[in-house]
Structures are given as C-alpha cells and as structure tokens.
Amino acid sequence: MTVLEVDRVTKVYAVRGAGQIKALDDVSFTLESGRTIGLVGQSGSGKSTIARILTQLETPTSGQVRLDGQPIPRRGAGLRAYRQKLRMVFQDPFASLNPYHSIRYHLERPLRLDGVVPGAEVEDEVRRLLTRVRLDHDVIDRRPHELSGGQRQRVAIARALASRPRLLVADEPVSMLDVSIRLGVLNLLADLGREEGLGVLYITHDLATARHFSDEILVLNQGRVVESGPADDVILRPQDPYTRELRAASPDPEKHFGSVSGALGGAR
C-alpha cells in the first residue's frame, strides 16, 4: 500500500512587472494505491501545477509532499526511486511524444532507465505493454505522427506504466482527443488502474467523467480546494457554490432548449 500525502502545498510564481501569482493555496489531499481521486477545476485553477509538483518538475513554495511518510528527495538515488513510483500521462498526445523517435524507443527508455527487466527481455516487455494498452504491435516501429491521437495517448499510458509505478497522475488525458474515443481511453485507464492496484490522480475539467472514474473528488478553484468528498456526494449534493456552478454548467442532454435565444439566455 503506497500513500502519497500532499500536505498544505502552496505555490507562488513571481511574474515580472505584475507581482505574484498564487497558483496553489494550502492544498492538501492523500492519494493511495488502489483508489482514484478526481481533481476538478477550470483552466487556471492550478490543476496542472499540482501535476508538475508531484512529478518534481516544480517544487512547492511551502508545504510538503510525502511518499510513505518520507518527504520527497530533491536529487540522487532517492529522487530516482520516487520517480519510478509515480508517473504522469500528459494532456497533449501530440506534444508528449518526441516526433523524432519511434514508439519502441519511447517504451524502451523507461524500461532501461529503471532496469525494470533485464536487457534481453526489453523487447518482449515492450510488446507486452502494447498489448496491455490494446495497441497493435506493428506501431512499434512507427513515429508518433503516423499514429492517431487516441493511439498516441495509449502509447503515453504504456510509457507511464513501463516502470511499474504505484501511482499515476493523469493530467487531462482525454481533453484533446475526439469525443468518441475519450471513453475508450478512460476505460483503459480505469481497467489498468484496477489491475495494477494503482493510485490514480485524475485531473480534469469535466465533472461528468470525474464522477464516472473516481472514488473521491476534489474541486479546485483558483488554487484552493473548495470541496472534497466521495464522488457521488460531491456531484449530487454539492455544498460549495462554485461546485454548484460547475455542475450547472455541465451540458445535460435531458434538458430541452425551446429556441436558440432561449437556450442562450437560459444557459448563461
């Protein structure tokens, strides 16, 4: 059982000429293996900042992140061990893969870096990963631009799983994909999470998929956690006014719009 504690993390950015921007303000939550947390908020609410802090691409201004009770090391073997346990799936499938390298390279690198399997078995492991994300093996020698968005995101998931992490951060993994394939990728993430017993932090702006996918939901507004709790509670019985607004803004296919102007007026 792996436990990641985010303890009162604040992140302040200094902007030249415009003072400071508080991206995160006193954010706390706990991510455990086997459970999925949905982090919901609009653009600019600080969601991606959390992802970057958890993957050590940034450091918090104050507060602490602890893995299994230990604060995360800043460098050296300790940092590498941490990185092997927590992996990220990025938002943009077009940008998160190096256009120059083949899929095989993308999947081999984490295997070799972390010594997950001995050198002779790397090729087999790459194929095994591709099977797990339900991709054909013949993508192995292709370059990213030859794949569709959904396929690329599956590769990104495979890459994240290569090092056999315990925790996964998925930063809006489907928001840049066609709507029709989003569910497929999300379900893949859910299945893999279940099979591996991963703790998943699912970052999104979409309340509906957060509910579908997570055990617990955190609502982030301008860097602060304004509401948290079991997914169904937060969605069906929101306490915070911001959460209520978010829910009201989600399109509901049940509602009828009388006329175009009525719809515009009503949806405001």
Partner: peptide, 21 residues
C-alpha cells in the same frame, strides 16, 4: 514541450535530454 518534460519526469539524465531528445 511536453516530451522534454516527460523525459525529465522519467528521470532521464541531462546529457541524454539534450543529446537524444
């Protein structure tokens, strides 16, 4: 770009990030 960030997050050493990515 994200793929460089991904390489960093995966713990690639600096010389590989510059040289290979």
């Amino acid at each position: 770009r994200d793929f460089v960030q991904a390489a960093r997050a995966n713990g690639e050493p600096l010389w590989r990030i510059i040289g290979h990515e």
